[in-house]
Each structure stands twice: as C-alpha cells, then as structure tokens.
C-alpha cells in the first residue's frame, strides 16, 4: 500500500522521485538505488533512506544494514571537494601511508573526516586498479599517479580554499 502511494504521489522530493522512476520498487534494486542516491547527493541522507524503505517496502534497518555494509556508501555529508588516496598493496609498498599522513596534516584532518569549513574530505580506498603508477591520489575525479608526500602537499595546497593548518 505504502509503496504504491509513494509511487503515485511521489515523495515530495523531486530528486528522489527522478531516481525511483527508473526502478520497479523491488527489494533487489536496493543497492542500485542507494548508489544513485549517493551519486545525486554525494552521500545517503537519512530522509532519503527512509523514503527508500517506503518505496521498496522493506524495514529501514535493512537499508541501514546494506548502507553500512558496503564501503562506498557514506551516511555523512562529504566536503565540497573529495580527496581519495588509494591504500592498495602496491601503493602501500610504495609509501602511500606517508602521503595520506601528509595530506591529513596539510588539511588538519584524518582519513574519513571533513574539514570544519566543509570544503575538503579525505578518504582512503582499498584499490583503484592503477597499481602500476602508485601511489595514486584522486582529487575530485582527477587521478594523480606516483605521488610523494611532497607532491601531494603541493597538489593539495594548489586546490581552491585550502586553509593552511597552523603548526601546533
């Protein structure tokens, strides 16, 4: 019943309606829908998850279960810009740990965090499959290969609105 109401009347959120339109409302579509929501919003807003539960007619905890099981989903709003460092084995043996630490120090955040001004998020990913040119860092979709801690710092500082963290 709920499902059909949501389908007929929409969710009151045009961006979500547009996503739901291309699905039939079957439980197996859950991961694809969450991926589309994250593509649209940059993360999974709680309200959107609740509406997805109604649309798919599944309990909300099931949706949270899936959203927290898979690494790609994020429940918090990311920064306007995202910096992702690959921490795959090839990048690891070529010293990505130091690169991540340096980027973190430059922005004043740890991996998984967003700068207080909401500008930058720093994430790590298990492998981007660019192992031959590791360490690899992706800034807003742009791949950078053979990054060192120094080149990473320069790259980050060259981004717009990067606030210099005062040395403690």
């Amino acid at each position: 019943m709920k499902k059909s109401t949501a389908k007929r009347n929409g969710t009151g959120e045009p961006r979500l309606d547009k996503i739901f339109k291309s699905y039939k409302g079957r439980a197996r579509e859950m991961i694809s829908i969450l991926q589309d929501i994250q593509d649209e919003y940059g993360f999974l807003p709680e309200e959107a998850l609740k509406k997805t539960a109604v649309f798919l007619d599944v309990p909300l905890p099931d949706i949270f279960g899936v959203a927290t099981f898979y690494r790609m989903f994020r429940l918090g709003r990311p920064g306007k810009h995202t910096i992702t460092a690959c921490i795959g084995t090839a990048c690891h043996v070529r010293g990505v740990t130091r690169v991540v630490e340096e980027i973190g120090r430059t922005l004043g955040i740890e991996p998984g965090q967003t700068t207080p001004d909401g500008e930058y998020s720093l994430d790590t990913v298990n492998c981007l499959g660019c192992c031959a040119i590791g360490p690899v860092v992706v800034m807003d979709g742009q791949y950078h290969g053979q990054v060192t801690s120094q080149s990473a710092r320069k790259l980050v500082k060259a981004q717009p609105n990067v606030k210099e963290v005062v040395k403690s």
Partner: peptide
Amino acid sequence: DEGDPGAY
C-alpha cells in the same frame, strides 16, 4: 569484483 588490492 576485482577486490585484491594490487590486481587490475
């Protein structure tokens, strides 16, 4: 689902 880090 090439999940092994280091394989592509």
